[in-house]
Design a protein around this nucleic acid. Structure first.
Lengths: 252, 252
DNA sequence: ATTCCGTATTGATTTCGATCAGATCGCCGC
DNA sequence: GCGGCGATCTGATCGAAATCAATACGGAAT
């Protein structure tokens, strides 16, 4: 039951005009599999496109949503980079994850019905926003979409176990870099030349290490010739060597 | 397209006759919310009951499924206790979680389409087995069931972040005990008197600690009067005191 | 009851990463 | 260019938990 929206305009909710074609746009989207794949009637397909709301750009450091806000929507990253951060009562921050283009933020809010963490952009970022009631209603009529939602949720479950193990600092960092490269490659970007838009502190926090440790390990990996790193620009020089270091953390 | 099943009978797949009424049974099930809640036509409800397959009992130490097996079904624990364990190429085991009655195992297999871990019973355990293709097909016709599946997935996402943080050993153990108590209470069991059917080694592995550390911390908690512990029988004497220790790990 | 063996507890020492401290770098505004 | 400030890197020390080691417990089989 849609309620009339308050007339306070959200400056970030500007639809983007020059997106290229619908199809081109969809191809970079987390739901491309569901909506491009053949076999859907035009009505369902249009319903999916209609419920998408383009939001952004967010500048680096802006909040997409905040902890304890009521859960309304999930956000697919179209371009940019986001982190999710949980803050405990003492104010300690905990980075839960980084989200690249084609990935979806907010799925962990479905069960508690409010966002359990903040989502903060780390560079200029655009999203597709999907009202969750709307997309789950549509999913009941589009089996492919329902399946895609199940897969997204399950995929994220698998991601968390990456972090879960007790691994040496070097393994964690190697796994982090390898994972980022693979995820970027999966979205059609270079898997070997990439920019770490998050700060060393964010990386360290995410990996449960001290920033100093991350720094030391990056230099060690560079000295071993596995990576080239200048500031936040990273090149993976020896992917299989890195993966060898990371192997205990990944693969399963 | 169902294939004729080989005639090797699975001794564990015995339906249990004396379950009490259907309703009584369902009330302890992870899908009770979906199938007891009013408003469903009898046909859909019966479909849900029909696709349930009671499996068990498994004795302590048996495998419900193994890593790399093709994903066929999810398992709701009806009675007993299960752990999931990932094994890396070097053979290092990693306990991913413990599952109590009313909880569901196997959801992390949806995306990769094969089980990414082993599921091992820790005491005599009964399950309801749901073919995933069947239950997701049914979910398209039963919005409440679809919602329940989304919630289960999302809930499990939240659980993993419990472990994710870098916390002192004492906080982790306190959080572990508190969490178990609360989950048991949520299923109608005592939240203060419980049996740790898993070994200290399993607990330690799950918490990313050494077994010796877990042991030491249990004695420390006992000396502080927070718990009573004899072997694997645990009583939480001071729930709020424990929760205070755990507070950095939980809540969000 | 006795033996056996896996599980659990307790103690001694080591180690990896955290913390503390200082130096450098890089970017932005003036 | 200059100054300022946050981010990053490097070095020195510390500490919590891992590891090593030995003992105690408890249930099952004989």
């Amino acid at each position: 039951m849609p309620t009339p929206r308050p007339q306070r305009p959200d400056p970030r909710a500007n639809p983007i005009a020059d997106d290229g074609t619908e199809v081109r746009f969809c191809s970079t989207c987390a739901f491309s599999g569901a909506c491009i794949d053949a076999g859907y009637d035009k009505i369902a397909l249009r319903d999916l496109h209609v419920l998408v709301e383009h939001v952004g750009p967010f500048r680096a450091g802006e909040h997409v949503f905040r902890s304890r806000e009521p859960f309304k929507a999930i956000y697919a990253v179209r371009a940019g980079l986001v982190k999710t951060v949980a803050v405990d009562p003492e104010g300690n921050e905990q980075v839960l994850g980084f989200y690249l283009p084609g990935e979806v933020v907010g799925l962990n809010a479905i069960y508690p019905e409010h966002y359990p963490c903040d989502a903060v952009t780390l560079e200029t970022t655009h999203f597709c926003r999907f009202s969750f009631p709307a997309i789950s209603a549509l999913a009941a009529r589009m089996p492919g979409l329902q399946q895609q939602l199940f897969r997204l949720l399950s995929k994220e479950l698998g991601m968390t176990s990456l972090l879960a193990g007790d691994h040496a600092a070097e393994e964690r960092v190697a796994a982090f870099v390898t994972d980022l490269g693979e995820r970027l490659a999966a979205q059609g970007f270079s898997g070997t030349r990439l920019r770490l838009s998050m700060s060393r502190l964010d990386i360290a926090n995410y990996l449960r290490l001290a920033a100093e440790t991350v720094s030391r390990i990056f230099t060690r990996l560079r000295d071993q010739g596995l990576i080239a790193l200048e500031g936040r620009d990273l090149e993976i020089l020896d992917p299989s060597g890195l993966r060898a270091l990371a192997r205990n953390v990944r693969d399963r």
